[in-house]
Write a protein that binds this DNA or RNA. Structure first.
Length: 967
RNA sequence: CGGCCCGUAGCUCAGCUGGUGAGAGCGGGGCUCUUAUAAAGCUCAGGUCGUGGGUUCGAGUCCCACCGGGCCGACCA
């Protein structure tokens, strides 16, 4: 009965993982882990809810890998780690999916189709891929409680969101405002900044007119102020001209007219001119000019020069044409000046009837007509075509307009300082994001445009009285006396009215809210706070840890922070790990149109989840892009796991052969190699913990990788003679390797949960302390590290390298024993000298002078005895090689036949004992050259030893032959 | 235009608070290993550590400028 289950010779990672997965489910390992730590200190994690109406991609595997490893680690430290899943269910992406399936092309068609049915389809659509998400999440080993996941469309969730909005409203932080936003005249809705960030929204090199226009002074029509614009269609709406108070302007004479523009912009003038006067912009303020078009009504303060801080001399004339409704700066300026702003263009993007000359024309089509009109009246100074970047609707490709609309805003600017302060308390990984990307974003904070003129979302809970304009923000369902089971979505909620103290009937405003607000509300809304679970929420806010990809800086990371700061004056999370983007092998973004998207399932089936996870942790440090391909994951991830597997396979093979039983030889690690590998283990444990404690998976994994590499390529390599069994020293060697591998499995558990558990389960010793899974064990503790030994061994390895190099140079293979070597630069203990002697195959290593540079010098003088020994070794190696080709496993007894020249037979005779032992030979026959190989030996081959040919015959011997090393 | 990140061997990337041959993996050439075998090791690459300055006894590692690549924001008149 072997100690360990014999391992398959080939590691099939995907299959192994499927088996482990089944075991976890069967034995309820996840649940047992949670139960085990029930009384531990909570380690709070927030799951950023994905929108489940699309298929998950590799980048989701990336984020989930990072989420998982720190959670597993904290659980192994004894923390109580709940991981509640969640789904983001509202918003335009969902509506779009449904629009597409209904072949709806414009917003009015939704109303025609019916909002009730439309929203019903949205609700179904959003959960369409949920099975796929759950399957992937489970397959990659991300332990997440999906059975009890929160959903943002749940009534309880919505009620909590309402509560939060009413809190903001009470503080005056939720208000209606008239603002300019990017607006799609076809979809008839403004777009969120998030949508403007969609690929393809901004397009480069879009041609537009660039026109320089004369604004004649009211008191002096021979003098004009020049202003430049790329949107001639906004000129009928002109209300003012803005200049920079501290910018220097000039008046020039050109022909019989005078022109005013910034001194730095004289280059826009065509032809000769004479500068007549220079003055600051402040001197122009208050000048009145003739309006270009007669459509807008007269009002106090209109058509004058004003000062504004946003004016620059980077382009144009240094004078900004200001049309109130079609530019953010413009509108703010006009409102500051107390000017009444009136639209010249309707919601459909066409000129309103009172703009008689252009009425009904779509604005972009009206540009030439406007220019022609100005030109005819001598007001067009210059026109050209410019190329610039311009935003388009990412759904219907209509050019967007900047358009003033009534919207509801959250006054985030009121708490900007608090946001910055809370952000400073967050531990960002990578650190530069805190003051870099996130800090910058907060510094340039604008009020949050919350409302959306759409259908599928959390309804904005504001009721307004049409009579007295009184507005009320509802903070609970009770306030509306909603019946049990009422669906608070549109259109049902719009039926609910409230009596107004003035006697009127209050109706809800039609808008829903930005779905990003929903996700930012998850810390409290997932618990239906404050209506339920108050303690739960208070205990679990802020989160200890969150992790999402880089694109969430202005998304979820921001909405969480903003809402927690405004509602609770707290940060929402203490540690945040932000992996960068996944790109293709050549560094290009993945996109469907480019066809370079990698299906996560392809990777999972070819390389497995652990290889992918390991590759994510180790290939680059957090913050760098992940250039992914199946080939790369195989090179980085599979390779490492394979090395670990081989190491384990070695232990299993030889421990079984030797009949070694765990528990024997423990605590007797007196051999220098054992002490060394245990020191390396202790060092790696310290590094792994240090890395994990600061949320640095990369360093932790690199330390573990180095440990596995050292174990395999140095400890195992040098320990092979002991591990082959037989000697009294083998038990401690087995015990040490067993310990190192078991601890390595525990170190790896957070990162490669499948392979770690497979290794652990293979090696676990039955009886007390056996848990059945590595994931139910504590994380290894770092013991004292023998740094002196580590340094000494490093020197030995360096010396071995140098010795091999000089052997190479001298053309003397390692199998040829040498008599002596001389080491300078260090003093090695006898046991270390022995390691070196064995590794470089030298009889005697002497350390002559401990000072000076580290070096080794080999004595290449060969005695006949040394030569002979080398020849025996060469012969043994050839026979081993034949055994391998013959398919004989180590330990399997065999019969050997050799025939050749006398000189070779002599070598064989001298080395026969060695040959029998090392090659597991029950029978050895030596015969003169030319003797045929006996029939019964199936394997025949000619090998070369010492330059001469030797015929080899190999066959299995009787099973009753004694097995070397067996008890 | 502004912010941030990156620029180290043919390729992909490590190099913590500046300090004793500038590293790993992959690819390629040459080898080796007493059966971990669809494995491992050694060795070769003569790497201006993007360029140019500066600080220092000493810089890939700190500072400045510039060049190149990426991401994000602003491109508004």
């Amino acid at each position: 009965m072997p100690t360990f289950e014999p391992l398959p010779s080939h590691l099939d990672l995907p299959r192994l993982e499927e088996e482990i997965l089944e075991r976890w489910q069967r034995e309820r390992i996840f649940e047992r882990g949670l139960a085990q730590n029930r009384s531990g200190t909570p380690f709070v994690f927030y799951e950023g809810p994905p929108t489940a109406n699309g298929l998950p991609g590799v980048h989701h595997v990336l984020a989930r890998s990072f989420k998982d490893c720190f959670l597993r680690y904290q659980q192994m430290l004894g923390r109580r780690v709940e991981r509640r899943g969640g789904w983001d269910t509202h918003g335009l992406p969902v509506e779009l999916e449904v629009e597409r399936s209904l072949r709806i092309r414009a917003k009015p068609e939704i109303e025609e189709f019916g909002v009730e049915e439309f929203n019903r389809l949205c609700r179904n659509s959003v959960m369409e891929y949920i099975d796929e998400w759950e399957r992937l999440t489970s397959r990659i080993g991300f332990w997440l409680d999906m059975a009890d996941a929160y959903r943002t469309y749940d009534a309880t969730y919505i009620e909590s969101v309402w509560w939060s909005l009413s809190q903001l409203h009470q503080r005056g932080w939720l208000y209606r405002g008239y603002r300019v936003a990017p607006y799609c005249p076809r979809c008839q809705t403004s777009l969120s900044s998030h949508e403007l960030g969609q690929p393809g929204a901004y397009r480069d090199d879009i041609p537009d007119p660039g026109v320089t226009v004369r604004f004649r002074l009211a008191d002096d029509p021979k003098t004009s102020i020049l202003a430049w614009t790329t949107t001639p269609w906004t000129l009928p709406g002109n209300l003012a001209l803005a200049v920079g108070a501290q910018i220097t302007y000039v008046r020039v004479r050109q022909g019989d007219e005078r022109l005013i523009l910034a001194r730095d912009r004289l280059s826009v003038l065509e032809g000769d001119y004479q500068v007549e006067e220079e003055f600051l912009g402040s001197e122009l303020v208050g000048l009145r000019y003739q309006r270009l078009f007669p459509y807008l009504e007269e009002q106090e303060g209109a058509w004058q020069v004003v000062a504004a801080d946003f004016v620059s001399t980077d382009d144009g004339t240094g004078v900004v044409h200001t049309a109130g409704a079609y530019g953010e700066d413009d509108l703010r300026l006009c409102l500051d000046l107390g000017l009444k702003v009136r639209h010249t263009v309707g919601l459909d993007g066409r000129f309103l009837p009172f703009v008689t000359d252009f009425q009904g024309v779509f604005v972009k089509d009206a540009d030439p007509a406007v220019m022609e009109d100005l030109s005819r009246r001598g007001l067009l100074y210059r026109s050209e075509t410019i190329l610039h970047t311009y935003p388009f609707c990412w759904r219907c490709e209509t050019p967007l307009l900047y358009y003033a609309l009534d919207s509801w805003f959250i006054r985030t600017t009121a708490v900007k300082e608090r946001l910055l302060e809370h952000n400073r308390s967050v531990h960002w990984v990578p650190a530069h994001l805190r003051d870099g990307r996130m800090g910058n974003w907060l510094e340039s904070l604008q009020d949050w445009n919350l409302s959306r003129a759409r259908y599928w979302g959390t309804p904005l809970p504001i009721w307004v009285c049409p009579e007295c304009q009184k507005e009320r923000c509802v903070g609970s369902f009770a306030e509306l006396a909603l019946p049990e089971g009422f669906d608070p979505h549109k259109p049902y909620i719009d039926e609910i009215t409230l009596p107004c103290p003035c006697g009127g009937v209050m109706r809800r405003v039609p808008e829903v809210i930005d779905c990003w607000y929903d996700s930012g509300a998850m810390p409290f809304a997932q618990w239906h706070y404050p209506f339920e679970n108050q303690e739960q929420f208070e205990r679990e806010h802020p989160a200890d840890y969150i992790s999402e990809a880089l694109d969430q800086t202005r998304g979820w990371f921001y909405t969480l922070l903003a809402e927690s700061a405004m509602l609770f004056d707290q940060p929402a999370y203490r540690n945040v790990v932000v992996p960068s983007l996944v790109v293709d092998e050549r560094g290009r973004k993945m996109s469907k149109s480019r066809g370079n998207v990698i299906d996560p399932w392809k990777l999972l089936s070819e390389t497995g989840a652990d290889a992918l996870r390991w590759w994510f942790y180790t290939t680059v440090k957090v913050g760098q892009e992940y250039r992914i391909s199946v080939r790369r994951v195989a090179e980085g991830g599979v390779r490492f796991l394979n090395l670990l597997w081989n190491t384990q396979s070695f232990l299993v093979t030889y421990a079984n052969l030797a009949g070694w039983v765990p528990g024997t030889g423990d605590g007797d690690a007196s051999h220098v190699l054992d002490r060394w590998v245990l020191a390396r283990l202790a060092e790696a444990v310290g590094e792994a913990r240090a890395g994990l404690d600061r949320y640095d998976a990369h360093s932790a994994c690199r330390a573990i990788q180095q440990l596995v590499d050292d174990t395999s390529t140095w400890y195992l390599r040098c320990s092979r003679p002991r591990l082959r069994g037989g000697s009294a020293e083998s038990a401690p060697a087995f015990a040490t390797l067993h310990q190192v591998l078991t601890e390595t499995a525990r170190l790896l558990a957070p990162f490669t949960p499948f392979v770690a558990d497979a290794v652990y389960q293979e090696l676990e010793v039955e009886g007390a302390g056996a848990t059945g899974s590595v994931h139910l064990l504590p994380y290894p503790e770092a013991g004292p590290v023998d740094h002196g030994l580590l340094e000494q061994m490093a020197a030995v390895r360096r010396l071995a390298e140098d010795a091999r190099a000089s052997r190479e140079e001298a053309g003397v293979p390692i199998r040829q024993p040498l008599s002596a070597a001389r080491v300078t630069g260090t003093e090695l203990s006898a046991e270390l000298r022995q390691v070196l002697e064995q590794e470089i195959n030298v009889r005697k290593v002497r350390c002559t002078s401990p000072d000076g540079p580290l070096a080794i010098e080999l004595d290449f003088e060969l005695t006949p005895e040394l030569r002979q020994e080398g020849a025996v070794r060469s012969l043994v190696r050839q026979v081993q090689s034949c055994r391998k080709s013959a398919g004989l496993r180590p330990g399997q007894p065999a019969e050997l036949f050799l025939s050749g020249e006398d000189r070779l037979l002599e070598i064989a005779r001298l080395g026969e004992r060695q040959l029998r032992e090392q090659c597991f030979l029950a029978e050895v026959t030596l015969a003169p050259a030319g003797t045929p190989v006996p029939e019964r030996l199936d394997y025949r081959s000619d090998v070369k030893v010492e330059g001469e040919v030797l015929a080899v015959g190999l066959g299995t011997a009787g099973t009753d032959a004694p097995m070397h090393g067996a008890p």
